[in-house]
């Protein structure tokens, strides 16, 4: 990804809108008693398109903003989401995603990883109470929602960052018809 000030501004806007939508909408709706979590999918999408460094920085920033808006201790969300973004970026750097299911599957996996990470942070901070087995069901359902939401989220982020994507440009170049001299 080629980071220009314009692309940076777009990334900031994507993060802001994503966090606001999450806390004001997705966290407050429930399907089968579980609220979807769109933020890991968003960070995974940025990581897949921008690479490990962009993914990690985006994850850190999105987590920081999330904790700030919820007036929670800072750092927990950043730690988890930066890991998710970094791993998504590493995946993109090592493997090529050919299948259309690739990004949604990775969004689901990223969400599951993020929930496990949040669990680890909660345990690190100390949980005095028992943990319900329903946590497992909730985490799996969140991942299933992330698989469904992963399609539009990845497509939306890809569209917003299109001018910065090197592969998009090379793809367009390949599709362009060759100039035949003398024709």
């Amino acid at each position: 990804m080629i980071l220009t000030p314009k692309i940076l501004a777009r990334l900031v806007l994507i993060g802001l809108v994503g966090v606001l939508l999450q806390v004001s909408f997705f966290s407050q709706v429930a399907l089968f008693h579980v609220s979807p979590d769109v933020l890991p999918a968003l960070v995974v999408s940025i990581g897949l398109l921008g690479g490990s460094l962009t993914g990690a920085v985006s994850g850190f920033s999105v987590g920081f903003l999330l904790n700030s808006l919820l007036i929670e201790p800072l750092g927990g969300g950043s730690l988890v989401l930066l890991g998710v973004g970094y791993l998504a970026g590493i995946f993109r750097e090592r493997f090529e995603i050919r299948s259309t299911f690739g990004a949604p599957v990775l969004c689901a996996a990223g969400t599951l990883l993020a929930e496990l990470g949040f669990g680890a942070v909660a345990l690190m901070l100390g949980i005095d109470s028992g943990v319900s087995p329903l946590v497992l069901r909730d985490m799996l359902l969140k991942s299933a929602f992330a698989f469904i939401l992963g399609w539009p989220v990845y497509a939306g982020v890809r569209r917003a960052l299109r001018p910065a994507l090197v592969e998009e440009d090379s793809g367009a170049r390949q599709r362009r018809r060759p100039t035949v001299l003398g024709a």
Binding site: L53, A56, F64, P73, L74, G75, L82, V121, L125
Partner: peptide, 26 residues
């Protein structure tokens, strides 16, 4: 280096802000 900085920053923030209510930044 950036990744290590971000991880350390996260742990630092967590240590500084956990159990202390809201801070000026928030």
């Amino acid at each position: 280096a950036v990744l290590a900085l971000l991880v350390l920053g996260s742990f630092g923030l967590l240590t500084l802000t956990y159990g202390r209510g809201s801070n000026g930044l928030q």
